[in-house]
Design a protein around this nucleic acid. Structure first.
Length: 113
RNA sequence: AGAGUGGACUGGGCAGUCGCGGCACAGCAGUGACGAGGAAAGUCCGAGCUCCCCACAGCAGGGUAACGGCUAACGGCCGCCGAGGGUGACCUUAGGGAAAGUGCAACAGAAAGAAACCGCCGCGCUUUGCGGUAAGGAUGGAAAGGCGAGGUAAGAGCUCACCGGCGCGCAGGAGACUGCGCGGCCCUGUAAACCCUACCCGGAGCAACACCGACCGGAAGCAGCAAUGCGCGCUCGCUGGGCGUAUUUCCGACGGGUGGCUUGAGCACGGGGGCAACCCCGCGCCUAGAUAGAUGACUGCCUUCAAAGACAGAACUCGGCUUACAGGUCCACUCUGUUU
RNA sequence: CCGCUCGUGGCGCAGUUGGAUAACGCAGCAGAUUCCGAUUCUGAAGAUCGGGGGUUCGAAUCCCUCCGGGCGGG
């Protein structure tokens, strides 16, 4: 059983941008919305502003590693739909630094207890 | 020792923990091996493959351009020739044709394939006119082959030597071409202007293309009053899978799924041919196939003065070209200086 | 994957059958007019013609290559 699913459709991203709660950190931007699916669903956005294909891949991997580490240790209040938007600084950070920013954003948004 | 030329390679390694992708053990779970590049990039050329059109040929349009070879093919590569540059190693080179034709050459200059402005010389004659003349001046990117001697009224390939160009002959070479001899003295540049000559090219692209007993809708069919159904049997620890036999058909649309999808003009080693590009033979190996897109995080040790830090992510596949690239390694060669 | 098109002062645009001071408008600067502004008039400045290389006597223009932007088709 996978621990989370990925959001793939553009309409899911648009729903979170318009109706979800957001929190912007220097490392990344988090959009969150509670769902009733019973499992967390996650999408990652890396625009062309971030850089070339290598830097976009790097940003996705760092965010995914930070989220997996957070998911296995933190206590979540229910299941959520989440969208992470990478910023230019994300490519130069370690995943532990991104994880720290993600935990702060989660507690501000009420995702974790 | 200093300065330089050409070429080849590398792009951290090992181990542990958590996590990812397809593959194998049938799926889940677990285990195992494998998992981005020299440019994967730009998409500038050339091919394979698939579909469309296909009788053949030509025109139009586009491309290439010394010569010989390599290659599946190429606008690529190798060798070689000519031209240019460098003391040299070596580098650069779209390098066919301008007496097949047309066009253009602004400004300057008298004149830009056609000549007399100044000058020089002769005659008339002293205001100037007529004739000869391309040695000199001036303009220009380019001025009637260059330079020297003879010659002349002054001059002129008018004559001669040398050099350059053209033609012919001989010798060498596979050829481009080179060398030697002879001849007449030879009408600027531009074809990345139109053009001529020789050779090559049908179009589109994996979102190609094929399949789906997977879903939806419609029409007809069979069984059935109707709902509905169009499979059943065997085997295995739960969903499901495998095997066997049997099967109503047609059409449409959107989003899917599967194949195409990695064994290939492949790679490594050894031997042979060739100056080389490359080719032949033998033996061994299988080395990413994702489909929003898989390689990340943390720790330790080694290398390093110190710190893992350049450019950069396969998307049908190959052969090239072009562009980007921190640091480092190796090979061959040249010049200058010093010492022996 | 394939094709087309554009790049010229700070901004918008001419010039693109090769011929030299790269034209014009707006903005900005200086001066005049005004008590001060606006308007108007005058003047000056401002351009690697996207970068590099080549052809040519001569390149914004022709050719090659690289960079950036935009559009279209499947």
């Amino acid at each position: 059983m996978p621990r989370f699913l990925s959001l793939k459709l553009n309409k899911d991203f648009l729903r979170l941008y318009h109706r979800g709660k957001s929190c912007a950190k220097p490392a990344l931007v988090v959009y969150a919305m509670k769902n009733r699916v019973g499992i967390c669903r996650v999408g990652i956005t890396t625009s062309k502003k971030i850089g070339n294909a290598v830097q976009r891949n790097r940003a996705r991997r760092v965010i995914r590693a930070a989220f997996q580490s957070t998911l296995s240790t933190a206590a979540f209040s229910g299941t959520w739909d989440l969208v992470f938007v990478a910023r230019t600084r994300t490519t130069r950070l370690k995943s532990t630094q991104v994880e720290l920013a993600m935990r702060q954003a989660f507690s501000e948004l009420g995702v974790t207890q």
